[in-house]
Design a protein around this nucleic acid. Structure first.
Lengths: 201, 201
DNA sequence: GTCTATATGAAGATAGAC
DNA sequence: GTCTATCTTCATATAGAC
């Protein structure tokens, strides 16, 4: 590992702090309601300084999403390395992790319909590469689970994938948590509805 | 039925047109990205005229939501009047209807985290009354379906209710539709994931 | 790179004539 | 009630000194 020059380490640390704040704000109020003033305030620097590190508000959100996807990769590695987990078990572990992240207030939820943001993300090659990487690893587990007969044959892999992504930012979690239920309980319930469905088995 | 004075009929028609436009815009881009200029433009009147009918942007959104809830009541009546539907069948019919509305581009989705809007809605007694009315009717069907043994005993009624509401604005629908799949197919898939779950039965 | 101060533009809401 | 024109606020982004 080559050591970076000290000045670059400082810069990196500052940018991490910025992305931390962005991540928190995105999780708490979403992209549209997050303001650059708030970000600067949380980090404790001037708003203009933000723009020395990131070109735009969209770039900030992209940075948070890229970090999240990077962490997802790490988590996928960890899950893949676990013993005694079949494909379905791995998918459940992934969903469990995303729900834990969300309940911890660390899931940057990008309200799904913002054109400027969507355009910026789709034009960001690093982001797209990370997203596809995660999607493909999940897809391979989905296919394996279907081959095992563990996943419903009625639902195509594509639909399973989107459903897993959707559960990662499911607003039901926040509502139940606000209702006073402990995190573990909330996760158990939503895991049950996701994998077993509402109907009795 | 007492006839309203002509002038009031005109006013009513105009307000319906306004709420139509708001409903469409809320479904298409959400509350935060909808602007009063757009609403006025869609209706074909001046922005200032909007404010002669509705006090604020929040009031516009509330009007759209109230009309939706009113329509939901009508739909619940219709479903309740159908022959040969047990409680679970009724719940499925409700979800089917909400998904149809969403795919038709008529589901005003209020991004779940907007404090000014949430506050306005919670302070709107008419809205709250309608919301509670719908919630209670759904809850009674949920309880009945659970008594039938048709719903999973692992999931409390409260969780079922929130899940049904969440499916009404599930972004997965739009993604699948954008993927080129016909509406019926999309609905079948999401109905299957909602009630039967992702795991094989 | 960090700051203060400011440019620029967008959007909610209003004034006042008709 | 409808319009045009305007007010006000606020948020993204930038200028320019240090």
């Amino acid at each position: 590992m080559a050591r970076l020059p000290f000045s670059q380490q400082v810069r990196q640390a500052r940018e991490d702090a910025i992305v931390d704040a962005v991540n928190r704000l995105l999780a708490g109020k979403g992209f549209d309601l997050m303001t650059m003033d708030e970000v600067a305030g949380e980090v404790g620097i001037a708003k203009a300084s933000l723009y020395k590190h990131f070109d735009s508000k969209e770039a900030l959100a992209a940075a948070a999403m890229k970090r999240l996807l990077g962490r997802a990769e790490v988590e996928l590695d960890r899950i893949a390395a676990r013993d005694g987990l079949d494909a379905l078990g791995r998918l459940k572990a992934v969903v469990h992790w995303t729900m834990t992240v969300q309940l911890a207030g660390e899931m940057p939820s990008l309200p799904s319909q913002n054109s400027s943001l969507r355009a910026a993300l789709m034009a960001d090659m690093d982001y797209m590469t990370l997203l596809m990487g995660v999607s493909e690893r999940l897809s391979s587990w989905i296919l394996a689970a279907q081959a095992d007969g563990a996943l419903s044959p009625k639902v195509p892999p594509e639909v399973v994938l989107y459903t897993l992504f959707a559960r990662a930012c499911d607003p039901v979690l926040a509502v139940l948590k606000a209702g006073g239920h402990p995190d573990d309980q909330v996760i158990d319930w939503v895991m049950a509805t996701t994998f077993d469905g509402l109907s009795a088995r």
